[in-house]
Computed example of a mutant assay.
Amino acid sequence: MSWIDAHRTSGRLDGRCLCGAVRIVVDGSHVAAVSVCHCGMCQRSTGYAYGSFVADAEAVTVEGAVATYASTPFSSRSFCPTCGSHLWLRDNEAGEYELFPGLFPAAAEFPLVSEIYTDRRPAYVPLAGDHRTKTQAEYEADNPHVEGDA
């Protein structure tokens, strides 16, 4: 069992954007834990740190209009076109959703399990706790197709 599989669960989570125009239901397999990225692209996208949890594509149902931006050749980011709330990032091949935990009240209980690009983390974003960490060089060595500080 991998470290992330220890947090894989099944069940229902209800979420929505700031204005309520987009509603998201996760009903099935998801990882009840948050991972954070501090690369430049994620910081520009969110204005802070990018934190997400993963849900299988089959478990996610979306109601409402969604706008999508192809942020890299291999992934896209989606948001509410009415209020601008960030909704998810999706790998074009894997298909699973990396959902923003703030959209889901129940996700407030999820632990922080990983943090990447820690050497790019702004001074105003100290994250405490015992979780896995990787610098830009460490992460990109494991994921050569990624250049997250673009």
Score class of each variant (00 low, 15 high):
69 Y>Q: 05
70 A>E: 11
70 A>G: 12
71 S>C: 11
72 T>R: 14
73 P>V: 06
73 P>R: 02
73 P>L: 03
73 P>E: 10
74 F>Q: 08
74 F>V: 12
74 F>C: 05
74 F>W: 15
75 S>K: 02
75 S>W: 00
75 S>V: 05
76 S>W: 06
76 S>D: 11
76 S>T: 03
76 S>M: 04
76 S>F: 13
77 R>C: 09
77 R>N: 04
77 R>M: 09
78 S>N: 06
78 S>H: 11
79 F>V: 10
79 F>I: 08
79 F>G: 08
79 F>C: 09
79 F>Y: 15
80 C>Q: 08
81 P>N: 13
81 P>G: 14
82 T>H: 10
82 T>N: 11
83 C>Q: 06
83 C>T: 12
83 C>N: 12
83 C>A: 10
84 G>K: 10
84 G>Q: 11
85 S>W: 04
85 S>N: 05
86 H>N: 11
87 L>P: 03
87 L>Y: 10
88 W>H: 14
88 W>F: 15
88 W>Q: 05
89 L>Q: 09
89 L>D: 06
89 L>H: 03
90 R>L: 06
90 R>Y: 01
90 R>N: 07
91 D>E: 09
91 D>F: 08
92 N>G: 12
92 N>Q: 06
94 A>P: 01
95 G>N: 06
95 G>H: 03
96 E>H: 15
96 E>R: 08
96 E>I: 01
96 E>T: 11
96 E>N: 14
97 Y>E: 08
98 E>H: 14
98 E>T: 07
98 E>C: 13
98 E>V: 03
98 E>W: 03
98 E>F: 09
98 E>K: 11
98 E>G: 10
99 L>N: 02
99 L>W: 04
100 F>Y: 13
101 P>R: 04
101 P>Q: 06
101 P>A: 10
102 G>E: 06
102 G>H: 03
103 L>W: 00
103 L>Y: 03
103 L>V: 02
103 L>Q: 07
104 F>T: 07
104 F>D: 08
104 F>Q: 03
105 P>E: 07
105 P>D: 09
106 A>M: 00
106 A>T: 06
106 A>R: 11
107 A>F: 02
107 A>S: 14
108 A>W: 00
108 A>F: 01
108 A>S: 14
109 E>I: 05
109 E>Q: 15
109 E>N: 09
110 F>N: 01
110 F>C: 04
111 P>V: 14
111 P>D: 09
111 P>S: 13
112 L>S: 07
112 L>K: 07
113 V>W: 00
113 V>C: 06
113 V>Y: 03
113 V>T: 13
114 S>I: 07
114 S>C: 12
115 E>N: 13
115 E>D: 13
116 I>D: 00
116 I>E: 00
116 I>F: 02
117 Y>N: 07
117 Y>H: 10
117 Y>P: 01
117 Y>A: 07
118 T>A: 07
118 T>M: 06
